[in-house]
Design a protein around this nucleic acid. Structure first.
Length: 346
DNA sequence: ATGGTTTTTACTGCGTC
DNA sequence: GACGCGGTAAAAACCAT
């Protein structure tokens, strides 16, 4: 699912491959700094995403190889490298024949999945098993391969964080694309020096929380606290910090996104779920929802919806699955029914 | 730190099975 | 009498300033 973004690349024209910048021919101090490729081009992330003229958002136009401002149209950089292939394919057979690339890169691994790994199966390229001497040899190589790949601290840091993100994401049932964005957020936090003084787990957790909300599949703080290795207070603190420093735009969670999960946990019908959504929508139109906790609203809409369809659900049951007090449910659901235009009275 | 808003806690009374 | 529900006051939590 995560590689769908790469499918369109084949059709892209290579407009700027011929302009790939030439390297200076001879340099006297021969590549002494080659080995320590730290954060290659990531240090000035802000400069790349914000227009210097009007501070609007910058967008990359891969068709023309330009970086332009979405607000004022200012062209910031026009020497972008087109990373698409230089050939075109007109059917899938031709695509297979011409393609010279391997797996897509992924943000989910600390080296973007570009490194090779020595397989764990003790067999050669023909599938024949190795003898014991060769086996020992491969085991040694594996060890050194692993040490080499995770050699510096930054990469070890990333590796641990991404593992943490992966673990929590599967515990919370979050899809791959959320993990990807969480990884991107974490990378940005790391390259902007947000980590010192904060725990890896905390920042990783905050990144995942932010990513889930951005993707419209939010999980409540309570749910995060259950799977995270950090306290809720630390989570909220680092979350706020990361969002502010990185300038992430995150709107308040949509109550409707909680409805399906609560409904299924309580074993309620589609009809009730639909009623709950309807209640939430009319509440939104009247602006009842602003400032109120989205989870509370979702819980109240579930309760009210079940009431309207005569499905027996008690307030305490709803408060149980939503982690919201019964009082809040009562207050919200009165407001919801009033906003709906009092269908009970009709 | 502070003040305003929202949520939670704790408690009470009412009606029903 | 246990349970579901509604309401209230005060405490706690949260958020922007």
């Amino acid at each position: 699912m995560s590689d769908t973004t790469h499918d369109g690349d084949d059709e892209r024209r290579a407009t700027s491959t011929e302009r790939v910048r030439e390297r200076p021919v001879a340099t006297e101090t021969e590549a002494e700094h080659e080995g320590e490729g730290e954060g290659e081009g990531e240090q000035s992330e802000n400069e790349r995403t914000i227009c210097p003229e009007c501070s609007g958002r910058l967008v990359h136009d891969t068709e023309h190889g330009e970086t332009v401002c979405a607000e004022c149209g200012l062209v910031v950089a026009d020497d972008g490298i087109d990373r698409g292939p230089e050939w075109r394919a007109f059917d899938s057979a031709e695509r297979d024949r011409k393609s010279r690339v391997g797996a897509p890169t992924t943000e989910m691994m600390h080296d973007k999945g570009l490194s090779t790994t020595i397989g764990w199966q003790d067999c050669d390229a023909y599938g024949k098993s190795l003898n014991s001497r060769q086996r020992r040899r491969m085991q040694r190589l594996r060890t050194w391969d692993e040490r080499f790949r995770t050699r510096n601290s930054k990469e070890r840091n990333l590796k641990q964080a991404l593992g943490e993100i992966d673990r929590m994401a599967s515990a919370l049932g979050l899809p791959d694309n959320v993990r990807e964005t969480a990884s991107v957020i974490y990378r940005r936090a790391l390259s902007e020096g947000l980590l010192p003084g904060r725990s890896i787990e905390g920042v990783a957790c905050a990144a995942l929380y932010a990513a889930a909300r951005q993707a419209g599949v939010p999980r409540s703080l309570d749910e995060f606290e259950r799977v995270a290795r950090v306290e809720k207070t630390e989570l909220t603190r680092t979350y706020r910090y990361v969002v502010r420093e990185l300038g992430l735009e995150i709107r308040p969670a949509d109550p409707e996104s909680y409805v399906p999960r609560f409904a299924s946990e309580l074993g309620l019908s589609e009809e009730t779920e639909a009623r709950a959504r309807k209640l939430l929508r009319s509440a939104k139109e009247q602006g009842i929802h602003s400032g109120k906790s989205p989870v509370g609203l979702a819980a109240a809409s579930i309760y009210a919806g079940a009431l309207l369809t005569n499905e027996g659900v008690t307030q305490s049951e709803v408060s149980e699955v939503a982690n919201i007090s019964e009082v809040t449910i009562r207050n919200r659901y009165h407001e919801l029914i009033e906003a709906e235009g009092d269908p009970l009275a009709a």
